[in-house]
Design a protein around this nucleic acid. Structure first.
Lengths: 209, 209
DNA sequence: GAGGATAATGGCACTCGTGGTCAAAAAGAT
DNA sequence: ATCTTTTTGACCACGAGTGCCATTATCCTC
């Protein structure tokens, strides 16, 4: 009931007890190979287990669900996102800081682009994964809400921080959609464009109710 | 391959052949009773079938998935949403029309409020249903995107219409969250407040990159 | 170096949702 | 009364998820 219940947690303390036979990364790689070949639905946990060379039960220990496999190290990237926002100059308007933060978060080295594209394509084009994604993005939104709340002296549960988190996600998802639809598109440009579209759209209105 | 494959489609042509033994509404009601008593996960299709008095297989014919049961007649409400938007005065700024449209769509007669609240609480507080919801909301976003596209002479697939659809959904979901958190809250006021929060937030920024 | 403690593994079994198939049932139509 | 039409429900199989537990492989202690 103490540490034995924890999942193997790749790269964690591992001195005593039977050594691990695989890793999150190894499973992820095998899984992606199979996903590419047979599609997400067409790939069973059994097939993944066979590809990795472990039991099906072991796969379920490393990933709490099949839907979680494509997400890889997402939790760790959230820490990076938090740092990005925290590093924003405090004199920058909050809205600008959030915008730049989201752009910076999605700035990848050019060589990491194809895998990232493949991963996002899988997630956004597989209904089961698309549905599952909002559960994962909840934490992403929370990062933004917490930052906005801190900057403005609100609580993260207040309407404004939550709104900004949710809207930021909406904009990012829209940009990603366009990005996946056009192989030559630049993600960062699309993110910026989406933000601009929203701003200009809202300026189309008078202050009526 | 013609009409026999179609689901029973409550209230459709039904003159020849074995008569239906239940309806979407009847199943929905029984299901909600059980959901309230045992929770969504704690209710199996078998239990619902027993409560309705039909076979488990029949439930699966009326609803393509367990996740779809709480949505009831959502498809039909989309038609209403389309009509609401189409009825907006053409001289109204698009952003204002969308805002008013979303508010009108969520304007329910006071007596329909408790069931609506119960339904939305179930959907938004059950992880599996929350995840499934974005698949359903895709059509809702499309209604907005199509309206915006028509008003501005764009294609519904363009960046701006999609952005507005996605952001509108984000605002609505945020408002619903707050609504469910406070029993005495008014949904329409919260929707308006969420829109205002976004507007004021964006005005907090200078036009920098 | 033998034995014990420790922790991951993997097999087994079970539940549940989903979906295919098909015979039976229940109505109208001839 | 028989035929046609359509729904029903039973049976089946598959896959994901999960609790349980013996097995295995390592480190630690004596």
């Amino acid at each position: 009931m103490t540490a034995a219940d924890q999942p193997p947690a790749t790269a964690a303390r591992q001195s005593v007890g039977r050594p691990v036979v695989t890793s999150h990364a190894a499973i992820e790689q095998s899984a992606f190979r199979l996903f590419a070949a047979h599609g997400f639905e067409g790939t069973t946990l059994e097939m993944i287990a066979a590809e990795v060379g472990v039991g099906r039960r072991t796969i379920s220990r490393y990933f709490t669900s099949k839907n979680d496999i494509p997400w890889g190290q997402f939790d760790r990237t959230l820490t990076g996102f938090r740092q990005i926002l925290d590093a924003m100059p405090p004199d920058l308007p909050v809205a600008t800081a959030v915008r730049r933060g989201v752009l910076a978060f999605n700035q990848f080295p050019p060589d990491a682009d194809p895998p990232h594209r493949q991963r996002m394509r899988l997630i956004l084009e597989t209904p089961a994964l698309l549905a599952h994604s909002i559960l994962r993005y909840e934490q992403w939104r929370a990062v933004i809400a917490e930052y906005v709340a801190r900057r403005l002296g609100h609580s993260p549960g207040d309407l404004l921080p939550r709104t900004v988190g949710q809207v930021s996600l909406a904009l990012a998802l829209t940009a990603y959609e366009s990005w996946l639809a056009d192989d030559s598109a630049d993600l960062n440009e699309l993110l910026a464009a989406t933000y601009d579209e929203l701003t200009s759209f809202l300026e189309l209105r008078e202050h009526s109710t």
